[in-house]
Amino acid sequence: MKSGSSLLDAELHKTDPRVKLIAAKLKKENFKPDALIEVLHTAQNVYGHLPLNVLAYISKALSLPPSRVYSTVTFYHFFSLKSKGEHTCLVCTGTACYVKGAQVILNEIESKIGLRPGQVSADNQLGIQVARCIGACGLAPAVVLDDEVQGKVTLGEIINKIIDKMAAK
């Protein structure tokens, strides 16, 4: 319909190292449309989430309709359209962790840092998430800070670690 839709014409900066990483992946996959999920994985890893202009770039590169790409992204919980924050704190709320006080940890995070699960701090430094069992029940209660599993956490210790992460940038 409209010829100059700003979303799709969004030129990504060719010099951006993140775009180079996606471009390399696209080339490696030979621009095959069925490599969509692999390319989205790479894009989510380098950006932390999937901005619309990146989706537009991928859809053009793989010759896939925009709606198809968007539908794939929204189907899988792994992909996120919104930023999850520079640092992520994922609290396991599986049965074992819940019994060992996952909710107490979440309440403490909310009162000390002011963020609830799914929220990202205003400066985009920290995002809080929850997961139903990360498979580390022996380490309950478990928290994953920036992809690093923290087992048998205590309240004061985990809050300090989160605050350190936010301060370290």
Partner: peptide, 13 residues
């Protein structure tokens, strides 16, 4: 959805 969940009137497809 139409395109990137964008309004139908702005669809490029």
């Amino acid at each position: 959805i139409s395109d990137f969940d964008t309004p139908w009137g702005e669809s490029i497809t």
